[in-house]
């Protein structure tokens, strides 16, 4: 009876053993990459909205402050989405016949709200409060990106936990003076020394314990 295993089997065995390790490693890499990709996080993806609202035009072009619409950012967990009546403050008079703004006018007429698609959507098991971040010197742009350069709104950051922790572990690298919170263009000249001073000034106690966000 001839031998079952030929000498080439040795090579085949070595290749498949290493191959299995590589295959598993690649599989793991693919999964991790997919999980961090914008397919899972929706980072950088523009979502369909009922009205193509341009932050670029309203903020950079017209110079309207964030607070004009997102009124409750300083006092509540939720920054607030403006009621249709806020839009109509101006659009009663300008662009008041634009077909693009018909959903807003209809909402104002009928009292039926506009249903926006949520762009920044944290999972339901995460607690987040806007007011404390704004009070302790975290600017809008730190998390939401250069909104003033977004003709259509998209999510600038991944909003994943590792991204949150990046700042919670080293807030001095991201903190800014309270006067510059709503300034989209602000860049620090010397973030490290300035940041450390602000951390002390604002008595920032950046929390890392699980139950701060996962209540």
């Amino acid at each position: 009876m001839s031998q079952i295993f030929k000498p080439s089997t040795n090579t085949l065995a070595r290749v498949s053993m290493f191959g299995a390790i590589f295959f598993l490693a690649i599989l793991a890499w693919v999964l991790v990459t997919l999980n961090r990709s914008s397919l899972a996080t929706r980072q950088g993806i523009v979502l369909q909205q009922p009205v193509p609202f341009s932050h670029d035009h309203h903020v950079a072009g017209l110079g309207i402050s964030c607070l004009y619409c997102h009124t409750t950012v300083e006092e509540s967990s939720f920054a607030g989405i403006p009621p249709s009546a806020t839009c109509m403050n101006c659009h009663k008079l300008i662009w008041n016949e634009s077909p693009m703004l018909e959903p807003v006018r209809e909402s104002y007429r009928t009292g039926r709200p506009i249903e926006w698609t949520r762009v920044h959507d944290l999972p339901d098991f995460v607690y987040f409060d806007h007011s404390i971040h704004v009070a302790k010197g975290i600017g809008c742009a730190s998390c939401h990106g250069r909104v003033d350069q977004m003709p259509l709104m998209y999510q600038a950051e991944s909003l994943q936990m590792e991204w949150c922790l990046e700042c919670h572990r080293a807030p001095e690298m991201f903190i800014r003076p309270r006067t510059e919170i709503y300034n989209m263009e602000w860049v620090s000249t010397d973030q490290e020394t300035e940041g450390a001073r602000l951390i002390a000034d604002y008595r920032v106690q950046s929390k890392l314990s699980c139950s701060v966000c996962h209540r």
């Binding site: 989405i81 009621p83 249709s84 009546a85 909402s107 709200p113 506009i114 949520r118 959507d121 999972p123």
Partner: peptide
């Protein structure tokens, strides 16, 4: 994947 959610503000707050 997290499902898409809606934000429904008031028409008149």
């Amino acid at each position: 994947r997290q499902p898409l959610e809606k934000i429904v503000p008031y028409a008149q707050q």
